[in-house]
């Protein structure tokens, strides 16, 4: 039996083992890799950024997934929340399925850990879990009055009495809805909130769902889209380079620039920065918290695993064609 014939009959568990190693090693020994941002991610970033410091604009984050797809969607949720908190953007959260409720609270808690001054009901508001039967009444109702449609938040407070509601009445103000979904839930927001009221809709979806959403992106019905772990990694980078950027010149982040993003490489591992203190030049190591670079570290492993899968496909095809050739000769 030749090598190629053996490869054709290899036990699939060996392949599982190799794929697992391709993921474990890059996670244990992380390295700095480049993340290239794509247009749908940049468009979403710029849209959110345009709401900075505005009293009469807010963003609604809708969570439509359970824990099984957390690996892809959780890093993008944390990144977008971090962006909103850095830029002083009002943000609301809502979910219509029971398993999404704890994930929504978890993402919010992880993101706001670094912003102790934020207040619930003032800077952000968690509407909490609403039964799916109320999806249509709430989505259509928010077109007239958000406070009336949602009624109470996760803590049981009357939404319209909250300070965050100053300047926020309907989709004219709550003008961007981002749905984090592992299903076709984004389509419902497009159908009811966009078509009926002209609200801007964006998607943070699992890679499986990305292909389904591209037609809506291409036709301009989605203002932006984060597709899977790659989309999350891109957004993490944009927040690092602009909204959360800090140095002597920019103490409060910097504005988006295509030139900056083209020329900036953000090391995800420990980096040394130098600054002048008095007359001395100080050098110090800074490291971003893991939660803000989780997707980019994950993409290291993803890249290695993809290369391995491509190698498997090539080897498998060579083996297939050689064994077919041998059979024909016999």
């Amino acid at each position: 039996m030749t090598f190629w014939e053996k490869i054709q009959n290899i036990d699939r568990r060996w392949i599982y083992m190799i794929v697992a190693l391709c993921i474990i090693v890059p996670l244990l020994i992380p390295f700095n890799s480049k993340t290239y941002v794509t247009e749908p991610t940049v468009n979403l970033y710029k849209k959110i950024d345009s709401f900075s410091d505005k009293e009469d604009k807010a963003i609604l984050l809708s969570f439509s997934h359970d824990a099984s797809t957390m690996a892809e969607l959780f890093p993008m949720e944390v990144s977008i929340l971090r962006h909103c908190f850095e830029r002083n953007i009002k943000v609301f959260l809502i979910c219509f399925s029971p398993p999404s409720a704890p994930l929504m609270a978890y993402a919010l808690n992880v993101a706001k850990e670094d912003y102790p001054d934020l207040e619930s009901g003032v800077d952000y508001c968690n509407f909490g879990y609403k039964p799916y039967g109320l999806f249509l009444p709430i989505v259509l109702g928010m077109g007239d009055d958000v406070g009336e449609a949602v009624d109470t938040d996760a803590d049981g407070r009357k939404v319209k009495n909250l300070e965050i509601m100053k300047g926020i009445r309907n989709y004219d103000d709550l003008n961007l809805i981002i749905d984090f979904a592992a299903s076709a839930a984004v389509f419902s927001w497009i159908t009811y909130a966009r078509v009926r009221f002209g609200a801007n809709v964006a998607a943070g979806v699992t890679a499986v769902m990305a292909a389904d959403n591209y037609p809506y992106l291409q036709s301009g019905q989605l203002v932006g889209m984060l597709a899977g772990l790659k989309g999350a990694a891109e957004y993490e980078k944009l927040v690092d380079v602009f909204a959360a950027y800090e140095d002597e010149q920019y103490s409060d982040g910097r504005n988006f620039s295509q030139e900056v993003i083209k020329n900036t490489w953000v090391p995800i591992m420990k980096k040394t920065i130098s600054y002048t203190s008095g007359e001395t030049n100080v050098q110090t190591d800074v490291e971003l918290p893991y939660k803000f670079k989780q997707a980019r570290i994950g993409m290291n492993a993803q890249s290695i695993a993809h290369i391995m899968i491509i190698v498997f496909i090539i080897i498998g095809n060579i083996g297939y064609f050689l064994s077919r050739k041998n059979k024909n000769e016999v």
């Binding site: 794929v19 697992a20 993921i23 474990i24 996670l27 244990l28 099984s68 797809t69 957390m70 690996a71 892809e72 959780f74 699992t206 890679a207 499986v208 990305a210 292909a211 597709a227 899977g228 772990l229 790659k230 893991y290 989780q294 570290i297 994950g298 492993a301 993803q302 695993a305 993809h306 899968i309």
Partner: peptide
């Protein structure tokens, strides 16, 4: 995209186990 998604889920679980 589906392959990417499935690998991402595995990465998420291994990140949890190792981290």
């Amino acid at each position: 995209y589906t392959v990417m998604a499935r690998i991402s889920l595995l990465i998420g679980r291994i990140q949890f186990l190792l981290g």
